[in-house]
Design a protein around this nucleic acid. Structure first.
Length: 511
RNA sequence: GUCCCCGUCGUCCAGCGGUUAGGACACCGCCCUUUCACGGCGGUAACACGGGUUCGAAUCCCGUCGGGGACGCCA
């Protein structure tokens, strides 16, 4: 009786408006570019608007430099948006941290109409509850303890000044069904839907509330996002209903995957668009590659191949303009595509070869051989050179992609390979959370070395070996800064996975 | 554990009831070539399994198995 069918029918004739909503918590992510591309194509194909909204409601994970990096990275791949924090628009502000008053008002509506309630537990209490549920092999879920607080109890808590969250009051019975445009109807029983926190005790909304409120207020007609959101969609549908709002269409795109098919992650695969830019990938190739993920582009027919004299491989090579002309959302295949660096590199090579000699020269000079890069490297080696001709000898690692030091270089005396690799993994974990300036890097590494009983000398030498492939190099921390965080970390990760595989192979041989 | 999604070569895609199951990347071989790369030609390689439905299933249905995601005062 409380079944909620979602009438987000194709009869929705509002002008198309879509959005991407990245969160400024770090480097711009390939997944953001992927979903951004899809939204961009969808909007352009329908003469609609493409909105960029910054979802910065998590104060604890907020990274100040991230927003600008997201703008830059999206522009780098060639995507532009019609409305956003930088360009404005009629439904701003486009930064959620600037919309807190709007969310507060909307929470009041829900509190008043009984679709949400205050909950006064502390984060610690909830965590303890979760742990005991997991221990008892129960699905971790809020137990609804404060669902039925009396007005007197609530007033008493409020008078105490106790912090509280606001939760969605999910019906105890029935189910919610919504339509996924790619998959058809998806149904969730309400007893599998948690009373989601909508408003945190710091007064900021959670994604779920902010996303629904903003999508409505910004007249978003189609929510095109990653598959990982499917399981929270019933909460969103319940929210639309609680407000009495029209639902958008939902399109859940397959998740980009690591080689092992798990959801793409920086541990297993470079995911930062900064990495790809700095490593010398062309934006056209990146966009083309993302367009390949999940299908969507019709292959040229046999007739086309013959009439246009296409090479068969050219079915995989297409521009953004081609995608606008031919991309078909109903063709998207739902299996999660592996983000295969090998094919991306091939594709990038194709684009590189097509460049005119002059354009190729400029590609080099604007990235890997830019004045800015060489200007940053120069002071690191000036005192160490006797002729300018030695520059390459000393700086090769700055311009190389594959740096693979042999064990004789990276393994310190009196240390086993096992403990050394373990420590290198610690270095990686440390550097991941370190600000990328020489001072921060140095003190973070020293602190780690002290904690793990590694001398400064061996500590830094290990990292030097991994990064430069040699025991002789320009100053380490400065080199790390110039080489860049994303590439430095990638080099470390690649070293670790190479060595770990080698260890595994050896172990197998011994058996 | 619970819920949800997915399942064609190693990888990315084509296939939408009748095909010798097609292309691309990777890999292997040959040709081109002072080397390498590019390029050209050829090759290895897949419908997860079991039941249905049907004259006929990679294609439709069910189950099993496998993979993935979600289960946060993260997004």
């Amino acid at each position: 009786m409380t079944d909620t069918a979602a009438p987000n029918s194709p009869l929705d004739t509002r002008p198309t408006r879509v959005r991407i909503a990245p969160s400024p918590t770090g480097d711009p992510h390939v997944g953001t570019a992927y979903i951004g591309l899809l939204n961009y194509i969808y909007a352009r194909q329908r003469g609609g608007q493409f909105v960029l909204r910054i979802e910065d409601t998590d104060r604890t994970r907020f990274v100040a430099s991230s927003e600008q990096m997201i703008f830059d990275a999206l522009k780098w791949v060639g995507l532009t948006w019609d409305e956003g924090p930088d360009v404005g628009g009629p439904y701003g502000p486009y930064r959620q941290s600037e919309r807190t008053e709007i969310y507060r008002e909307h929470v009041e509506i829900l509190l008043a109409n009984g679709t949400a309630y205050r909950s006064f537990e502390t984060a610690d209490e909830l965590e303890a509850m979760r742990q005991s549920q997991i221990a008892a092999k129960q699905p971790p879920r809020y137990n609804g303890a404060h669902r039925h607080l009396t007005p007197q109890q609530i007033d008493a808590f409020l008078a105490e000044g106790r912090p509280y969250t606001v939760r969605l009051k999910v019906p105890t019975e029935g189910s919610t069904t919504f339509r996924d445009e790619l998959r058809g109807d998806i149904r969730f029983d309400h007893n599998n839907v948690d009373d989601q926190v909508l408003m945190k005790s710091d007064g900021f909304p959670t994604y779920h509330l902010a996303n629904v409120v903003d999508d409505h207020l910004m007249h978003i007609t189609d929510v095109i996002r990653a598959e990982e959101w499917i399981s929270s969609t019933p909460k969103h549908v319940l929210l639309y209903n609680a407000f009495g709002w029209q639902l958008p269409r939902f399109w859940h795109m397959p998740l980009l995957r690591n080689i092992d098919k798990s959801k793409i992650s920086k541990r297993k695969n470079p995911v930062s668009l900064v990495y790809y830019r700095e490593s010398g990938y062309l934006p056209e190739a990146m966009l083309n590659f993302l367009g390949l993920m999940g299908g969507g582009m019709a292959q040229p027919t046999e007739a086309e191949i013959v009439s246009k004299g296409l090479n068969t491989k050219e079915g995989d090579i297409f521009s953004l303009a081609d995608m606008l002309a031919k991309f078909d959302f109903t063709r998207i295949s739902l299996g999660g595509p592996v983000f295969d660096l090998v094919k991306l590199k091939w594709l990038n090579g194709e684009y590189l070869r097509k460049l005119s000699p002059d354009a190729f020269f400029h590609a080099l000079r604007s990235t890997i051989l830019s004045d800015a890069y060489i200007r940053a490297i120069a002071p690191l080696v000036q005192a160490r050179l006797e002729t300018l001709g030695q520059f390459g000898d000393m700086t090769g690692f700055f311009f190389a992609d594959n740096v693979t030091p042999p064990e004789s270089v990276w393994l310190p005396k009196k240390r086993t390979p096992e403990e050394t690799l373990l420590f290198a993994a610690d270095q990686l974990a440390t550097l991941e959370t370190t600000n990328w300036d020489a001072m921060s890097i140095e003190s973070a590494l020293k602190a780690l070395g002290e904690a793990k009983q590694w001398s400064v000398k061996k500590n830094f030498m290990l990292l030097r070996a991994i990064l430069t492939g040699s025991v002789t190099s320009p100053p380490l921390t400065e080199s790390l800064v110039v080489f860049g965080k994303s590439r430095s970390l990638d080099r470390l990760r690649r070293f670790l996975s190479t060595q770990q595989e080698a260890q595994k192979r050896q172990a197998n041989q011994r058996k």
